[in-house]
Amino acid sequence: MTKTILAIDDSKAVRDMVAFTLEPQGFRVVSAENGADGLQKLRSERPALVITDLNMPVMNGIDFISNARRDAAGTGVPIVMLTTESSPEMKAKGKAAGATGWINKPFDTDKLIAVTRKLLG
């Protein structure tokens, strides 16, 4: 069965790039523009993996992660944060909220594929 990946980022370029990278790998990629939008998609699309930006308008990535972890649709789903903030606090905050892992931005496609494989097998 094709696994669905939810990409949340306020930049369409980043969302497109995630889709562009992962679709040829046999995944279905759906996207959302911010955390609030992401929560809705999480419930409606039931993704196997979520890749989310942290700094977004409306609802940021950290809030998305903690909300997702409190949601029936989001428990146990791996959530990867995309972060340019290489600061350890940001990662710690994300982890405390329940993030599975992270990818440093700017990311290359190999890294994205590697992390996806690592979390989805």
């Binding site: 146990g76 789903v77 599975t100 892992g101 690592k118 979390l119 097998g121």
Partner: peptide, 14 residues
């Protein structure tokens, strides 16, 4: 760890 969506099985695979 299980609440964060990490799976031991996939770690072993890696």
């Amino acid at each position: 760890m299980y609440g964060t969506g990490n799976e031991p099985f996939f770690l072993f695979q890696a």
